Computed example of a mutant assay.
Amino acid sequence: MRALVLTAALLATVTVAAATETGSGSPRLRPLPLPGPDTEAGLTGMTATGMVHGFVRGRGAPARAAVWRDGRLTLLERTGPSTPTAANDHDQVVGSYTRRPGEEERAVLWTGGRRVDLHPRGAFRSAAVGITDRAEVLVVSHHVSSDTLGTARRLSLWRPGGWRTLVEDGRFHDPVLGAAGDVAVLVDDRALLFPRGRGPGIRLVGLGGGAPVPMGINAGGAVLLACEDDGRGRAALWRDGGLTDLGSLGGGDTRFVGTGPRHGPWLNAAGEVTGLSETCDGRYHAFRWRRGVMTDLTPHAPYSTSYAINERGDIAGEVPVPGAAGTHALLWKRRSTTDLGAATPGNLTMPTALHPRLPQVAGTDAAPGSSATSLFTSQ
């Protein structure tokens, strides 16, 4: 099932760019600071304030959670491994950290310059995987099983003041948290939806024979599902008990592109979807699905990729440079396309994150086959 989420190239260079309206020029980029030379950087997203969140890792050192505001780097943890997974529009970041060497990771919320430990009682390992604007946090934790002979996993929703257990079973995968507190997760061979993080769970039926993988939930409670049918990817949108097949660009295979743990978002509040779909001649192109129609965003390109869609309907993606090496970052709006160019000519420039309400992107830029990293921001 996880093959339905295509993994982009390893995160290498973070780029933040403000789109120009003309689409004819490349924004000027300036470097973002790193802790030192030979540092690898990864990106997990951008918030409504323009804060970029991700990690930095020096050679031979563990990853550390970090944010960039107005071109300034802040490490969320000074020592020990730490990993961010998500953030909300109040710049609260969640993920995991380790208190001291040799210990297991613990779920954490970073807010207002302080750390809030969200490690559930009785757990030996935990990680936060999502957060809403109301500071509801989705946590995966590992516990000793009741027979003390093995381990069990638990999926819980933390709200300020208390916990709610949703799944107490070691066989769940791919949990996602929606803006309104809805939770969807794959449990054994079933996909379940917990509206507002409550109830026994509503079963989500997909397309084809297998269980669908929840990819995202919008503010209205619609759930984007990745399905598999005879080895080909299919996408569907579940709304109020009804299921809509998003179709394809003619080739019958539709998937989503992620970077590490799934990112996106591939679904916005208006019900628009972006992803990757096969054309009649076997090429894979970025698409926009809106009101029942899937549109090829680059009908003449050899290939293209889309990574995220925001509430305006802007889509961030990349296309190859004609007659040259590397790719350019693109921003598709509803009525125009902006070529953001390449952070470094000849490199693969991938805008893997998108401002939720503005035409600004964040992404990676790396020479093909190289692990060298640097960071950029637009002026």
Rank of each mutant, 00 (worst) to 15 (best):
L6I: 08
T7S: 07
A12I: 12
A19R: 01
T20Y: 00
T22N: 13
P27W: 11
P27V: 02
R28D: 04
P31H: 09
L32H: 00
P35A: 01
G36N: 07
T39S: 13
A41T: 06
T44A: 09
T47S: 14
F55Y: 14
F55D: 08
R59F: 08
A63G: 02
A65F: 00
V67S: 01
R69S: 00
G71R: 04
R72Y: 01
T79Y: 15
T79M: 14
T79L: 14
T83I: 11
N88I: 06
N88S: 08
D89Y: 14
Y97S: 01
P101A: 12
A107F: 01
A107P: 13
V108M: 04
W110G: 00
G113P: 10
R114W: 02
R115I: 00
R121H: 11
R125L: 09
A127G: 08
R134H: 14
E136H: 13
V137P: 10
V139L: 02
V140I: 00
H143K: 06
S146D: 14
L149Q: 15
G150M: 05
R153W: 04
L157G: 08
L157M: 05
W158L: 02
G161R: 10
G162L: 11
R164Q: 11
R171I: 05
F172D: 10
P175M: 07
V176E: 06
L177Y: 10
G178Q: 12
A179E: 15
L192K: 08
F194Y: 15
P195S: 04
R196S: 11
L204V: 07
G209W: 09
G210D: 09
G210M: 12
G210S: 14
P212S: 07
V213N: 05
A219L: 12
G220R: 15
G220L: 12
V223E: 01
L224M: 05
E228C: 07
G231H: 04
R232L: 13
D240Y: 07
G242D: 11
L249E: 06
G250V: 02
G251V: 10
G251A: 04
T254W: 12
T254L: 06
R255L: 06
F256Y: 13
R262Q: 06
R262E: 03
R262S: 11
H263A: 13
L267D: 03
A269M: 03
G271I: 15
V273N: 01
L276C: 03
S277P: 04
C280W: 05
D281Y: 10
W289P: 13
W289E: 07
V293H: 15
D296Y: 07
P299M: 02
S304F: 08
S306H: 08
A308R: 04
I315M: 07
E318T: 11
V321L: 00
P322D: 01
P322T: 00
A325P: 02
G326R: 11
A329S: 11
K333D: 02
D339M: 05
G341V: 01
A342I: 01
A342R: 07
T344C: 03
P345R: 14
M350V: 07
T352S: 12
T352M: 07
A353Q: 02
V361R: 09
A362M: 08
T364S: 15
A366L: 09
A366C: 05
A366Y: 09
L375F: 09
F376D: 03
T377S: 15
T377N: 09
